[in-house]
Design a protein around this nucleic acid. Structure first.
Lengths: 201, 201
DNA sequence: ATTAAATTTGACTTTAAAGTAGAATTTTCT
DNA sequence: AGAAAATTCTACTTTAAAGTCAAATTTAAT
């Protein structure tokens, strides 16, 4: 069994394989974000890594698996963010803001892509991804509700509150990397304020 | 020349042709919104109208033209909204809110779809669509700036203000028709408030 | 009723991209 | 060095969907 922290990791076959597979998925995800799933061919994905299309099939079963894993990676990152607990002195609104900032950071700085091509996934895989997304949405909705209970967030349909600012997050993918003069931090600051003012009590 | 208001319109061949072509595009746009451009085949589009795939080619040159026209229709509607002038007693913020409400109405009630598949358009067509979108964005940004000048909207990068709430608009497409219990009006009300609070001075 | 134009179709070709097979190469281990 | 395993390649097949075309049908006017 290979431990990620092991000094031997670079010589461990499983670790090698996993990290290459990960590279395939990350690179593809970035292309999907920029040009869309269907406008990115397996040949393109290979080329970006200096590989031939056929070589990719050593790491993944098919193209759909890449899309699937791209989605999972994004949701894993978001779950990770959501894991961090809330400090006792934080209001619900403060906490929500902190989470949202980290979401923005993920998208602008960590190369994580929130993809919209769920419909290109079939059956089971699509269901899995939608489940993950719904799960995260529910947790964010519940954060909003906590804020409403402690009086830091104004009343109103919590789900609509969430859809509004999650839209900003998704839309980020469409324009961000084409806008050179704004840093991820700038955007996080701005968006956090707009989120806060938009729903504070 | 066929006038749309003419009593003879139903017997006018050009009018017939135009309205059928329009139906093709609207129906396709709705499918694109729900399942995505590449997950909707010409056969699907035909079937939805009780036609065979080949019949569609009587109305459009190719599939891409449908996507192109879908985009244009959406932007035409938005331009229409933007045409309405501002009343003298309206603050910049009030005016922006009114515009935004109408955008929401378009998407929830008028069957207009704001598509994201710009990358599936090639060359000239893609450029045209992006130009239209940029144009609209600019006008909205300028509304925000007017609000900042009259003191109704707080300071800050006007483009970021706009990207935030335009994201909400785009994201609407992804979830709206799957949510039966909310009317377009509900959403417009809620979103208008969240927009307003998010950027008011 | 006939005719001409408009509309639609069934049956086809084309195309782009996914996916596969087996050979070739590189890496790791002894 | 030699063998075995891992990795990648070239060349191919398959597939799904776009797009075409000549013929059939429908519609509207004389």
């Amino acid at each position: 069994m290979a431990s990620a922290a092991s000094i031997k990791a670079p010589f461990d076959r499983e670790v090698q394989f996993a990290s290459k597979k990960r590279a395939v998925i990350l690179s593809a995800a970035s292309a999907f974000r920029r040009r869309g799933y269907h406008n990115t061919s397996m040949t393109d994905i290979g080329k970006a890594l200096g590989l031939t299309k056929a070589a990719l099939y050593y790491y993944v079963r098919n193209k759909e698996e890449i899309l699937f894993e791209s989605h999972l990676m994004a949701y894993d990152s978001m779950d990770e963010v959501l894991k961090a607990g809330r400090a006792d002195d934080q209001t619900g609104l403060d906490y929500l803001e902190a989470i949202f900032r980290q979401f923005v950071d993920l998208l602008t700085q960590s190369g994580v892509s929130l993809l919209t091509d769920v419909d290109s996934l079939s059956g089971e895989w699509q269901a899995d991804v939608l489940k993950r997304r719904t799960e995260i949405e529910k947790r964010v909705v519940s954060l909003v509700q906590q804020g409403q209970e402690d009086g830091s967030i104004r009343a109103g349909d919590a789900r609509l509150h969430v859809f509004f600012f999650m839209g900003a997050l998704n839309w980020l993918n469409a324009w961000f990397d084409t806008e050179g003069r704004l840093t991820g931090g700038d955007i996080a600051d701005h968006f956090a304020l707009q989120l806060r003012d938009g729903i504070s009590a």
